[in-house]
Simulated scan of single mutants.
Amino acid sequence: MNTNENHSFRLPAEWEPQSGIILIWPHEDTDWRPYLNEITEVYLQMADAITRFEPLLITVRDTEKVHSLLAERLTEGQIKRVTLFACDNNDTWARDVAPISLVSDKEPKGSLQALRLLDFCFNGWGEKFAAEKDNRINRQLYEAGLLQGVLENHKDFVLEGGSIESDGDRTLFTTTGCLMAPHRNQPLTQEGIDKRLRLFFPNVERVVWLDYGQLAGDDTDGHIDTIVRVAPNHTLLYIGCDDKEDEHYEDFRLLEEQLKQLRTIDGAPYRLLRLPMPDAIYDNGERLPATHANFLIINGAVLVPTYNQPEKDKVALDIIQEAFPDREVIGIDSRTIIRQHGSIHCLTMQLPLNG
């Protein structure tokens, strides 16, 4: 039984109505420096796609420079949907830095009390990278009045947005590889973490732990948003691997078997949609974690990473369109993003609508 005092709140599914998207803009003192022009172009493409459908909140180090770049690319109407906030950062992975939002179906719609913004600790995926500046972003946005809702401090618990998936109802999905990885929340056991998750997210009655599906080159220890995504109508999109010579083959075969055994909270099998494993992409001899599963759902559209692999890109886009038939599916070349071991979903965080 959930005893959280915020029992009227729930973690919405990503496809529910949104009030905006958060981005953290790259600059020359981030790891993007060697290809800053290339990643800036990707950000401009994302900004263009997002602002066609909803507002965009961007934290930036140089607001004038970024505004000029956006003004050259976006229409006047799109620019009006952009808010720039001057704020320093270590890196740009908004998915794991920005607050995880809860919505209330009982509080008055449009009121600040209808949203809870959970501010967890981001520690660079288990203390691999510096994150002290990133950890201050949410508080700065909140104090500037740019986050609507009530900010809750949960800095005593490490939780990254990319490590969980919600169906908006009663089930939360995660991976044992990530949440049980070193330097996260030791000495908590899996049982202890499971209990904490159900307290943080009051609507969640069960946590589904996936045990397989680790992508080569992934810094996150296995974020679920790189391998399995939740869609409406009890649908799970997941990465499959057909090449028996691929290093991923056996692990992703076991993932597929685990997914086939899963049942919804009401006892029915999930509708499974299988996405192709992109052909291997290397950077200086290191395999990069290319995946079509790291898509972003926004109001009216889905932004999908592509990798200049026409056949597999098309298959992935068509399957994601099948999962989201009422949304426009927009492919964005993500070969530059994966050079820093993430993709579109990793760079973004949605803010739910509270009215």
Rank of each mutant, 00 (worst) to 15 (best):
S19N: 13
I24N: 06
H27C: 10
H27W: 02
H27N: 13
E28P: 13
D29F: 10
T30E: 03
R33C: 14
P34H: 02
P34G: 03
Y35H: 13
Y35D: 14
L36Q: 06
N37I: 03
N37Q: 07
E38Y: 00
I39N: 01
I39K: 00
E41V: 08
Y43F: 09
L44T: 00
M46E: 05
M46D: 04
M46C: 04
A47V: 00
A47C: 05
A49V: 09
T51F: 05
R52W: 00
E54H: 02
T59P: 09
T59E: 04
T59I: 04
V60C: 06
V60S: 08
V60R: 06
R61E: 12
K65P: 12
H67Q: 10
S68H: 13
L69P: 10
E72H: 06
E72R: 12
Q78Y: 01
Q78M: 08
K80Q: 13
T83A: 11
T83H: 11
T83M: 03
L84P: 06
F85Q: 03
C87T: 11
C87S: 10
D91Y: 01
D91K: 01
T92S: 05
T92W: 00
W93P: 10
A94V: 08
A94T: 11
A98P: 14
P99L: 01
I100Y: 01
S101L: 03
S101W: 07
L102H: 07
V103F: 06
S104C: 06
P108F: 02
K109V: 15
S111R: 10
L115V: 15
R116F: 00
L117A: 10
L118V: 10
L118Y: 05
D119A: 02
C121E: 15
F122D: 11
F122W: 07
N123F: 03
G124Y: 00
G126C: 02
K128D: 04
A131P: 14
D134Y: 05
N135K: 08
R136E: 14
R139M: 13
L141P: 12
L141I: 11
Y142K: 12
Y142Q: 13
E143P: 15
E143H: 10
G145N: 09
L146R: 10
G149V: 07
V150Q: 15
V150L: 08
E152N: 14
H154K: 14
D156T: 11
D156H: 07
F157Y: 04
F157I: 01
